[in-house]
């Protein structure tokens, strides 16, 4: 579980996050949604420790991350996996080397153990046999799956995904969403996904936090979205004229 308490973040005069408190539950896919510029990426960067909040605290299972020592922070980070928007795979390494990198860096496993672990992760993301390919030789969707495989190779307790569906076609997006959800449930981990993909919201939104101009505008789950009276949420969900027509039809 990850708990965020009164998080504030400013860049100079500009206040990007204005005191956000929210809890991300274990074994569930927790979504942070909002329009571009709402503060989602800043929020995610604070959650993973890439940015320090101006005020407030992030708790990893009751441990206040900002008060931990460098060694303790490192220990937490070993339990964190992250899928980046652009996958962030190392171009000079093969798929296998990319996934194996955390194992090479932090474990004393034998070559065979690492190989088995890499193959297991590739199996989980349905990319068996792609070991020797380079990131430049595979599609965007496959790169995302390799990114997921790398993020779960150390058996993380916390998984963060930044816009996992960006740049993907709807079918591949669904596959990626299903994969993340399956990993979350199977491994009983805390997953936080930063997205503005409506399909993800409606399909895998166990917990949803809507950010609007740096404030928490709405909290709920996928079953509560359509019936929510929140104007901000409805404006966000039904942003396009097509979806507005669909909503009208749904209401009728």
């Amino acid at each position: 579980m990850i708990r965020v308490e009164e998080i504030k973040k400013s860049f100079g005069e500009q206040e990007v996050l204005k005191g956000i408190s929210v809890t991300f539950e274990q074994g569930k896919t927790n979504l942070i949604i909002g329009r571009s510029g709402a503060g989602k990426t800043v929020m995610l960067k604070i959650l993973v420790g890439l940015l320090n909040p101006t005020a407030g605290a992030v708790y990893y299972d009751d441990l206040n991350f900002s008060t931990l020592s460098v060694k303790e922070k490192k220990k937490i980070r070993m339990q964190v996996g992250m899928l980046f928007q652009g996958s962030a795979l190392f171009d000079s390494m093969t798929v296998e080397e990319n996934i194996r990198f955390p194992l090479d860096m932090f474990t004393n496993d034998t070559k065979l153990e690492k190989e088995n672990r890499v193959n297991h992760c590739l199996e989980r993301v349905e990319l068996e046999g792609s070991n020797k390919k380079y990131p430049g030789e595979i599609s965007g969707g496959m790169q995302k799956r390799v990114g997921i495989a790398r993020s779960i190779v150390m058996n993380p307790k916390y998984l963060f995904c930044d816009e996992p569906n960006s740049g993907l076609d709807p079918k591949t997006s669904i596959l990626i969403d299903e994969l993340i959800r399956k990993i979350t449930i199977d491994n009983n981990i805390t997953t936080v996904i930063n997205t503005h993909d409506m399909n993800s919201v409606m399909e895998i939104g166990d917990n949803i936090a809507l950010l609007y101009h740096g404030e928490l505008a709405w909290v709920g789950n996928k079953d509560e979205v359509l019936d929510s009276p929140s104007e901000t949420l409805q404006d966000f969900i039904f942003a396009s004229p097509f979806l507005q027509r669909l909503r009208k039809a749904y209401n009728q």
Binding site: F84, Q85, A88, F106
Partner: peptide
Amino acid sequence: QKEQIDALEIMGV
């Protein structure tokens, strides 16, 4: 720019 440095940092490198 490709967030690879961020990825390393999150891994704890």
